[in-house]
Design a protein around this nucleic acid. Sequence first.
DNA 1: TGGGTCATGTAACCTGTTACATGATTAG
DNA 2: CTAATCATGTAACAGGTTACATGACCCA
Lengths: 172, 172
Amino acid sequence: MNGYEIMTVFRDSLKHFWQAQTSQIYRELQTLEKNEWIRATHVEQESRPDKKMLTITEEGRNELVRWLKDDTLKSSIRSPMLMKTFFRGECSIDENIEYFRSLPKREAVFPAGSEKADSISDEYKRTIQDPYKALYWKFTIDFGIMYEKMIREWCEHCIRELEGIRHENFTD
Amino acid sequence: MNGYEIMTVFRDSLKHFWQAQTSQIYRELQTLEKNEWIRATHVEQESRPDKKMLTITEEGRNELVRWLKDDTLKSSIRSPMLMKTFFRGECSIDENIEYFRSLPKREAVFPAGSEKADSISDEYKRTIQDPYKALYWKFTIDFGIMYEKMIREWCEHCIRELEGIRHENFTD
DNA sequence: TGGGTCATGTAACCTGTTACATGATTAG
DNA sequence: CTAATCATGTAACAGGTTACATGACCCA
C-alpha cells in the first residue's frame, strides 16, 4: 500500500478501535523506513499523482511478530468518558440521568449502526483477500458491537441507581 | 490536596480508567496554576517535607463544569489489544486460541480481583466524604467490572469461532 | 542499615492532534 | 464549474512515558 491507502483503511475499517491522522501516518511511515522495516518503490502514473508504494521487509515482519508475541505490554483503558462520569457529582441527579440517557448514542462505536459495519467489510475484504486474516478483523468488529451493548447496560444500571436515590434526602 | 496526594488517588482509585505518572501530574498542576484554575498555599510541617496545598478557584470550577457539559468531545476507543488482535492472522489457529484464553487475565482491569476494588474504596470514601460524589466513582468501578465480563465473553466467542474452523481446510 | 513513605520536581523523548500547504483529475 | 478523490507531506503544539534527581523520616 501507499500512505493514502493506509489512511483510507484507518478511516473506513479500523476507526472503531484506532483513529489516525494522515500526518501521523506519513510520519510513522518515515520512521518505519528509517528502521528498514518497510521499503519504498516509486510508481509513476498517468493522469494521477505518482505513488510511493511500500512493502514490508523481512526484518519488518520479524519485528511485527515479535511485537505480537510480546504480552508484557499492558493496554489499560484511558477513557475521557469515565473521567467525566467520575466528576458528575458536580451536577444534579436529574442532569445526570439525562447524561446517562444520551451517553450510548454519543459514545457509539458505530454511529451509523453496527449493521452498516458489514457493508464496510465488503470493501475491506476485497483489500485483504485472505479470509483467515479477515476473520481477525471481524473479531474487532464483534468487540465493538459487544462494547456498545455493554455501555447501554451500564447506563441503564446507573439510571436505575440514580432513580432509586432521587426520592431520598440525597439531593444537591 | 497536594501533588503527592493526587498521585496516590490516581494510583489507588482511578487507575482502572486512567493512569498518570507523577511527572505528568506536577506538570499539569503547573499549567492549572498558570491558568489560575487552582491556587497554591505553602504549608510548613515538622518532621515531614513542606507541602504545597492546592485549591480550586472559582474560574477553575467554572472551567470544570464547562468541560463536563461539553459533549462535543468524542472519546473513541484506542486499543493496542485490538490492534494486536487485528494482526493475529499472522499466527496459527492454535496459537490464537491460546492467545484468547490468556487474554482476560492479561487485560484485567482489576488484576487483584474486582472484589478487592471495594477494599480500595474504603480508603477513597474517607478522602471523598460526600456519598453523592462517591457514587459516581462507584459507577466507574461498575464499568470496569462489566468491561471485564464483556472481555471474557468476547474471548469465548472468538475461541468458539476458531475451534469451528480448525477442522476445515482453513489452516496457516 | 536498608527499604518504604512523604514530598518535590526536571529533561528528554515519543505519540497524537490541529492547522497548513499544494495540485491534478474526475464525476455530477 | 465545483466538490470530491488521489496523493504527498511539514510545523507546531499538546499530552503521555521514561529516566533522573534529591532528601528526610520511620519502621523492622
